[in-house]
Design a binder for these strands. Structure first.
Length: 860
RNA sequence: GCCUGGGUGGCGGAAUUGGUAGACGCAAGGGACUUAAAAUCCCUCGAUACCUAGUAUCGUGCCGGUUCGACUCCGGCCCUAGGCACCA
C-alpha cells in the first residue's frame, strides 16, 4: 500500500467490495432490534444536488451508526419517478418521459453509489413502474368503494403554463409553485380523496408525535385549522329561505347589522335576479372573479360590496339586515356567508363605514366606553356584553356557550366545528402519472376497473405535443374501452393521479418491494419494519407530503393492511444548503467559474457578491457533487456537509471549508500510516496497564472522545461537534512524543487511540476508515465492528480546575483533585493569593461552592 | 397582522441542567523544515487600555428584571428566515 491518501482509488475499491459482498442487504430477523431509517426519496430530475448529498449523508451516518450498535437496519432508496418535468422534457426535447426518467435514474443511482451510501439496493423501487402503481390503483378502488375517493365538479387552481390543476398546497401566494405563473380558476370534474374524514385523528395525533419538530407540528395544525364556533340561521325577511353562516363569535350576534355573501356564490345572482340591481350585481360579480385571479399576489385590495336589494332578519334582535355581496368573503370557508358585526370586527367596521351601515356596540371594554359615532376601529378585545338581551352583564367569552345553546333552543343554530383543510384533489390532466382505474359507461355510469384487470398500464406510445388537454384523452387505444359490466363501448378516465399519492405509501412498499401478492404489501414484513424509526428530509414537505402520508397510513390501517397509526416516529428536517451569489450587471447571475478576481469573466465588470441563498440553478450558486467527488472524494464531501453546521440548520457552503475537511482526512490518514509499523502486532490497550503522564492523558482523552461522540450522535444528531471531538483527539495524538520501540504499553495505548479514531469516524467517512482499518491488519468489515463503549474510570478526570469568583466575576483558578472536599476547596479559595488581595478589608457575606465547577465569594 | 425558528469573533459554529463565553474548523499572522515554493509540523489569534511580560475594563441584537452568578430564565423592543394570512 502506498502511503498517500488517494480518495478516488480507495473509494471505488470499497464501493465495489460493499456491492459484491452485499453487506447492506437486510432481511427480517426477529431476534434483533430493527431500525428503519428513511430519507425522502428523490425525484429523478437529472443529477443529484448538494441538498440530496446533505440529506442522504445525514441518513447514512445514522444508519451506519445504528448498524454498529447492533441494530438490524433497513435503509432503502428509490425514485419518485412520476411527475411533470419528465413530460416537459418530452415536449421540449422529443424524448419519451420514460426514457428521460430512466436515464436520469441510472445516472443518479451511479452518483449515490459513488457517495458510498449504505443502501440495500435490492429494494430499489421506481414509482412509475406498473409493479408499483398497480397497488395504488387497487387502493383507489377500495377508496372508491368506501366513498373515500369521489368525484365532484369544482373550481380548481389552473396553471396556464403547466396546463394542469394544482392542489391548494401547490399554490404559493397565488402563483404556481413550479413555474410561478399566476394561477387561474377553472371548473372541472375532479377526483378527490376524503382526507377530511380523518381530520380529527390527524389533528389529535399531532400531539402524539413527540419525535417531530415542534414547528412541523405547528404547521400541520395550522393547515388543518380547526375552529370551534356556531352555525347561525338568519331567516330571509320575505319568504321561507334561510341564510346559514358559520361564526366563532356568536357572542356578538346581537351586534350583527348586515349580512355578507361571497360574490362567487350562486346565491348572490339568485337574490338579485329580476331586480333593478341585477345588471349592476352581475358586473360586480364578474369584476370580483377577475380580481380573484390576482388576489393573493397583490396587496389587500379595498373591501368592496354591493347591496342585493334583499334583507334577512337577525334571529335574536329581529332587526332587518341588508344583504351584500362582498369581495373579501371566502366562498370555500364555512358557508360562504358571514354575519357582519361592524363594532367588533375590523373588516366589517371598514365595510360599514364605507357603505354607511348601522353599528351596535355589544361588548363593553373594562376601562372605557365605546361610542358608535366616535369609534375609529372595531373593538376586538374581551369585555362585558351589553345590548344583548338576557346576556347583558356576562363576560363575552363566557357567553359563547350560553348564546350557542340559546340559538339552538330557538332552532336558529347549533354549535359546530370548521376546518381549513379541504379534501385532496388528485386529478391531473397529465400523461406522466398513474392512471385512475375508472371507466365511464353511458349505460352503467361510473364503473371501477375490476381488480382482476389491474394494473391499468400507462401506454407508452402517446404523442406529447404540449397542447392543452389530456394527452391520454386523445389516445384512442387507451381511452376507448368496454364497460366491465355490460360490455358496451365506454371511456376510460384519462386523468392521472397527483404524484403525492405515490409518495404517501412508498415507505411501506420498501418493506416488501417485490411483493406481487395483493395488496402489494407483505403484512409480516411491513409489520416487522414499520413504522419508520427515523425519517429525514427537507422542511418544504412539512405540510403536503407528511400530511398525506399520515392520512394514507390511517386509511390503509382501516383497510386492514397496516396495524399502526402513524408512519414516522421521529422526523428530522434538515436545513437548506446555501451559498453566496455572484451577480454581474451585464450578464446576470454568474457561476463561480465565471468570476475571476471579483470580476466578470465575460466583461471584466465588477461582480456584486450577494447574500447567501439556497443553492439553485437560477441563482447559479450551485456546487456540483460530481466535481467534489472527483476533486476530493466522497468522504470529504460527506465530512464537510456534517461538519459545517448541525443538520437542522442551514448549511453555509464554503470552498475553503471543504479544503479544511480534506486536510483533516489527510491528517488522520498520515498519523495512522505513520504509526502503522509501531502498532503492528500490538494489542489495543484494554485496561490493566498502569499509565501515567501523557499516555494516561491520551487514554483518558480517547475514552472521553468515545463518550462525547456517542452522546452527540445518539442524543441529538450533532455530527459537527462529534467531528470536532475526534479532531481534538487527532490533535492530541500529534502532540504525543513518539514512544520507543520496546515500549509495548505505550504502543498499545496509541493503537487504542488510532482504532478509536477510525471507528468513531467510520459512519461519517466510511471509505477512508475502511482502508485504514485494513492497514491496521484487520480483515473483517469495519461497518460491522461494534461501536465502542467508554470506560467510566478511564474517562474520569483526576484533577479539575475550579474557578474562583468574587461577586460573580472570575478572578482566579485553581487545580484540585477531583474528589477534593468542598470545605477544603472553599478554604483554598479564600487563601488564594489573588483573592486575598481582592477581598482584604471587605466582609465576606457568602461563599457558594458549586461542586466540580466554582467557588463564588460574595463580599461587601 | 398572527404562529414558529434564529441573532455569539473577520467567517462557519461550540458552550448538553443557570456556573471558566468563543471548543473545533476556516481565514489571518509568526516560526520550523526546504536552495526555493507547495505541502507538512508547531505557535498566536474577541475588543480596548497600559511602562504590551501580565493585568484591568468591556463583550453573546437592544432596554430592563430575577439571581451570589444569565448566551441560557422572565418582561418589552429591534432585526432576520420560514409558515399562515380578509378563515368570520
Amino acid at each position: 500500500m502506498e502511503n498517500k491518501y488517494k480518495p478516488r482509488e480507495l473509494e471505488k475499491k470499497w464501493q465495489k467490495i460493499w456491492e459484491d459482498s452485499g453487506i447492506f442487504k437486510v432481511t427480517e430477523d426477529l431476534n434483533r432490534k430493527k431500525y428503519y431509517l428513511l430519507e425522502m426519496f428523490p425525484y429523478p430530475s437529472g443529477k443529484i444536488h448538494m441538498g440530496h448529498v446533505r440529506n442522504y449523508t445525514i441518513g447514512d451516518v445514522v444508519a451506519r451508526y445504528k448498524r454498529m450498535n447492533g441494530y438490524n437496519v433497513l435503509h432503502p432508496m428509490g425514485w419518485d419517478s412520476f411527475g411533470m418535468p419528465a413530460e416537459n422534457a418530452a415536449i421540449d426535447h422529443k424524448i419519451h418521459p420514460a426514457t428521460w426518467t430512466n436515464e436520469n435514474i441510472a445516472y443518479m443511482r451511479k452518483q449515490l453509489k459513488e457517495m458510498g451510501f449504505s443502501y440495500d439496493w435490492d429494494r430499489e423501487l421506481s414509482t412509475c413502474e406498473p409493479e408499483y402503481y398497480r397497488w395504488e390503483q387497487l387502493f383507489f378502488l377500495w377508496m372508491y368503494e368506501k366513498g373515500l375517493a369521489y368525484k365532484k365538479s369544482s373550481i380548481v387552481n389552473w396553471c396556464r403554463d403547466c396546463k394542469t390543476v394544482l392542489a391548494n398546497e401547490q399554490v404559493e401566494a397565488g402563483l404556481c409553485w413550479r413555474c410561478s405563473k399566476e394561477v387561474e380558476e377553472k371548473y372541472l370534474d375532479q377526483w378527490f380523496f376524503r382526507i377530511t374524514d380523518y381530520v380529527d385523528e390527524l389533528l389529535e395525533y399531532c400531539d402524539k408525535l413527540p419525535g417531530w419538530p415542534e414547528r412541523v407540528i405547528t404547521m400541520q395544525k395550522n393547515w388543518i385549522g380547526k375552529s370551534f364556533g356556531c352555525e347561525i340561521h338568519f331567516p330571509m325577511a320575505e319568504g321561507n329561505d334561510v341564510i346559514k353562516v358559520f361564526t366563532t363569535r356568536q357572542d356578538t350576534v346581537y351586534g350583527a347589522t348586515f349580512m355578507l355573501a361571497a360574490a362567487e356564490l350562486p346565491l348572490v345572482m339568485e337574490m338579485a335576479k329580476g331586480k333593478p340591481v341585477e345588471k349592476e350585481v352581475r358586473e360586480f360579480v364578474d369584476k370580483v372573479k377577475k380580481q380573484d385571479k390576482l388576489m393573493r399576489t397583490s396587496e389587500y385590495y379595498d373591501k368592496e360590496g354591493i347591496f342585493l336589494d334583499a334583507y334577512c332578519l337577525n334571529p335574536v334582535t329581529k332587526k332587518r339586515m341588508p344583504i351584500f355581496a362582498a369581495n373579501f368573503v371566502v366562498a370555500e370557508y364555512g358557508t360562504g356567508c358571514v354575519m357582519a358585526v361592524p363594532t367588533h370586527d375590523q373588516r366589517d367596521f371598514e365595510f360599514a363605514k364605507k357603505y354607511n351601515l348601522p353599528l351596535i356596540v355589544v361588548i363593553q371594554p373594562p376601562n372605557k366606553s365605546l361610542n358608535v359615532h366616535t369609534m375609529t376601529e372595531a373593538y376586538m378585545e374581551e369585555g362585558m356584553l351589553i345590548n344583548s338581551g338576557q346576556f347583558n352583564g356576562m363576560e363575552n367569552m363566557k357567553a359563547l356557550d350560553a348564546i350557542a345553546e340559546y340559538l339552538e333552543s330557538m332552532g336558529r343554530g347549533k354549535k359546530t366545528i370548521q376546518y381549513r383543510l379541504r379534501d385532496w384533489g388528485i386529478s391531473r390532466q397529465r400523461y406522466w402519472g398513474a392512471p385512475i382505474p375508472i371507466i365511464y359507461c353511458d349505460k352503467c355510469g361510473t364503473m371501477p376497473v375490476p381488480e382482476t384487470d389491474l394494473p391499468v398500464v400507462l401506454p407508452r406510445d402517446v404523442e406529447l405535443t404540449g397542447e392543452g388537454g389530456s394527452p391520454l384523452g386523445k389516445y384512442k387505444a387507451f381511452a376507448e374501452t368496454q364497460c366491465p359490466k355490460c360490455g358496451s363501448a365506454a371511456k376510460r378516465e384519462t386523468d392521472t393521479m397527483d404524484t403525492f399519492v405515490e409518495s404517501s405509501w412508498y415507505f411501506d412498499r420498501f418493506c416488501s418491494p417485490q411483493c406481487a401478492e395483493k395488496p402489494g404489501l407483505d403484512r409480516k414484513k411491513v409489520g416487522y419494519w414499520m413504522p419508520v424509526d427515523q425519517y429525514i428530509g427537507g422542511i418544504e414537505h412539512a405540510i403536503l407530503h407528511l400530511l398525506y402520508s399520515r392520512f394514507y397510513t390511517k386509511m390503509l390501517r382501516d383497510f386492514g393492511v397496516l396495524d399502526f397509526d402513524e408512519p414516522f416516529i421521529n422526523l428530522l428536517t434538515q436545513g437548506m444548503v446555501c451559498k453566496e451569489t455572484a451577480h454581474c450587471k451585464e450578464h446576470g447571475y454568474l457561476f463561480p467559474e465565471e468570476v475571476k478576481d471579483d470580476k466578470c469573466k465575460h466583461c471584466e465588470a465588477a461582480v456584486t457578491i450577494g447574500k447567501s441563498e439556497k443553492m439553485s440553478k437560477s441563482l447559479k450558486n450551485v456546487v456540483d457533487p460530481d466535481y467534489l467527488i472527483k476533486q476530493y472524494g466522497a468522504d470529504t464531501a460527506r465530512m464537510f456537509c456534517l461538519f459545517a453546521a448541525p443538520p437542522e440548520k442551514d448549511l453555509e457552503w464554503s470552498d475553503q471549508g471543504v479544503e479544511g475537511s480534506f486536510r483533516f482526512l489527510n491528517r488522520a490518514w498520515r498519523i495512522v500510516m505513520d504509526y502503522r509499523d509501531d502498532v503492528e502486532g500490538v494489542k489495543s490497550a484494554g485496561g490493566g496497564e498502569t499509565l501515567e503522564g501523557e499516555l494516561k492523558n491520551l487514554r483518558r482523552k480517547t475514552h472521553q472522545t468515545i463518550r462525547k461522540v456517542t452522546r452527540d450522535i445518539e442524543d441529538r444528531f450533532h455530527f459537527n461537534t462529534a467531528i470536532s471531538a475526534v479532531m481534538e483527539l487527532v490533535n492530541a495524538l500529534y502532540l504525543i512524543e513518539r514512544p520507543a520501540q520496546e515500549d509495548k504499553v505505550a504502543r498499545s495505548v496509541i493503537r487504542e487511540t488510532i482504532e478509536t479514531v477510525i471507528i468513531l469516524l467510520a459512519p461519517i467517512v466510511p471509505h477512508v476508515t475502511a482502508e485504514l482499518w485494513k492497514a491496521l491488519g484487520y480483515e473483517g468489515s469495519l461497518a460491522d465492528v461494534p461501536w465502542p463503549a467508554y470506560d467510566h474510570e478511564v474517562a474520569a478526570e483526576e484533577e479539575i480546575t475550579i474557578v474562583i469568583q468574587v461577586n460573580g466575576k472570575v478572578r482566579s483558578r485553581m487545580v484540585v483533585p477531583v474528589d477534593e472536599d468542598g470545605e477544603k476547596i472553599k478554604a483554598l479559595a479564600l487563601n488564594d493569593e489573588k483573592i486575598v488581595s481582592l477581598i482584604s478589608g471587605k466582609k465576606v457575606v457568602r461563599e457558594i461552592y458549586v461542586p466540580r465547577k466554582l467557588v463564588n465569594i460574595v463580599v461587601q
